[in-house]
Amino acid sequence: MGGYDFFLIRATIGLLAGLGVLSLYGTAYSFLASQADRHWHMTPAYSQYLDRMDGMAFPLVVGLLVAMTLCIPKRIIPRDVLLRFSAAIVVLAAGLGAVRGAGTALAFLMALSMILQVAVVAAVLFRPDTLRFERHGLVAQLGSALLHLGFVVFVFDLVILYESRWHIGVFWLATLLMVVGTALSFYAPEIGARTARKPPDGGCPDRA
């Protein structure tokens, strides 16, 4: 299963790097275009540039969503069925995409990611023994789970709820989850050391 994890990590890094390169290209393109016309961002050429950038970013964003959806179940799905489960998700999403369009397929992936990630957060709190994490300790695992949940909610909000009146409210929820998750994840050792109870005899504190 290490190969599966490693593949997902490499795929995520590759897709993020692709977005980075695309952004760099966009900056360079904007610079060159502004050299020719300082107000080019107020011309139709700017709209064409935006459409082109959207088009190039779309497969990368879809790839990231797929990678994220495949990454989350590894925490809770038994390893012997994980590959079959992942393959079923991809086939189902592809089928939905073919029949109902890319939007429905993406919504399915994101809704599934959210449900699974909520299950991960619940398991961290109540059944931590059923989970598989790279990092140990309640604080680090809770941080990681909340961060990923926040990210999933953030993407869902941006893609599906963009025009909805709930958009900004859900955005703040996602932000809160991501910030708390990042803080817990980064400062897990310090928080763990502070919250560990000291035994009455003055011995070593429990490890979080």
Partner: peptide, 28 residues
């Protein structure tokens, strides 16, 4: 982000050079 929605309203901002570079920096 909510500030962009409030201040720039319908102006296209997503692939603005500063936003692009911010994304590069954050990814790095």
């Amino acid at each position: 982000y909510p500030w962009t929605r409030e201040a720039w309203k319908d102006q296209p901002w997503w692939w603005d050079p500063k936003i692009n570079m911010t994304l590069v920096m954050w990814v790095l």
